[in-house]
Structure formats: structure tokens, C-alpha cells
Amino acid sequence: MNKSKVSLGYDFVKGFIDENPTFKLAIGMCPTLAVTTSVINGFWMGVSVVFVLAFSNVFVSALRKVIPDEIRIPVFVIFIATPVVIVELLMRAYLPAIYDILGIFVPLIVVNCLIIHRAEAFAYRQPVINSLMDGLGSGMAFTINLMVIGAIREFLGTGQIAFGSVAFPEVPLFEPAAVMLTPPGGFITLGVLMALLNIAVARVNKRKKAGSDIGYGNC
């Protein structure tokens, strides 16, 4: 049906603004604050979450009719833990340097409330294809959020943004503020970004509303 197609696209997009996990729902805060000291950390954390989220959403959705309601949370955790172990082993094998930094936060994805939240609030009630879209959308939005926070903190905290061996700018332009790499810096960045996004969304909504009001007035 046409309607499901529309909602399929929306299921993917909604994670970016309307149900942005970090700035709107304020969930998954633990990795958000802990690993975003650099862009690259944020990126790999995000990628891991996308994989886990898509995996768990698909399986929860596919088996939603056979999972007994009473024990659904333990079942969710199994579906989440499986891809987390896969990610952890892959990362250890191929990205040992990143794994050293992310460390405990990779296995901790199991209890990341973003993933449980999507499973409980979305995948448990929706068809498989929608759930996949939702998982990918939310996961990618989460990745972008982590990278943006990481970029700001890395830039202000070290004066540079580094990708592997390349750094921009080569020499810091100002005296970096060490506080930005510490948890308080993370909270401040998160708070400011959350405020800015909400202001922007409120402005856009207001303009939309004002536009439609005029439209009604004319016809």
C-alpha cells in the first residue's frame, strides 16, 4: 500500500530529527558522553550501534508474534547480545587500537537503552522491513550525533580534528581547553547542542504553522 511506503521512508528519517535518540529522546547517554572525545571514536561506536540495532530490530520484529509478553525483555537482550559479541570480536580482530579506546563501552552496548527502547517501542509492534528501516535510521542518527559531539570536543579540547594520521589544522590555532575532553565538557557540549537543535526545530515548526495559517486564510 501507498501508506506503508510513506511510513517506510518516515521510519528511516524520523530518527534524525523527530525521534533523535540523543537530542530528543535523551537515551543512550552513557556511550554518548564517554566515547565522544574524538570524531573517530564516535564514528566506530556509531557503526557498532547501527549494526546491533538493525540486527536486533529485525529479529525482534520477525519473532514478535511468538515472543511471550512476560519474558520479552530477556529475549530482547539475547537478540541484542548476539550482535554485540560479533561486533566485539570483529573489532578486537581488525581494529585493536579503536577497541582499546572504546573498551568496556562496546560490550556495554548490550544495555544501551537506545537499543532496548527501539526493540520495545518499535520493533515489537512493527513489520520486519519497517523495523529494519527504523534501526538503520536511528543508528545512523546516533552515529552522526556522536561524530558531531566528538568533533566539537576534539577540536576545542585538542585544537585539531584527527583522522588516523591526518590532522586538521596541522598546528592548533588556539590554546586547547582540556576541560572539553573531560566529562563536564561532554555535558556542556551535549546541553548546548540539544538546546540549539530544539530551538531550530521550534523555529521551523513555527514557520510551518504560520505558513499554513496564511494558507487557510486565503482559501
Binding site: E175, A177, A178, V179, M180, T182, P184
Partner: peptide, 10 residues
């Protein structure tokens, strides 16, 4: 406190 955490040497 923020300045102390940001630029401790100064």
C-alpha cells in the same frame, strides 16, 4: 572551575 579545568597551567 571551568577555567581551572580547561587551562590548568594558566
Amino acid at each position: 572551575a571551568f577555567l581551572l579545568a580547561a587551562w590548568p597551567l594558566h
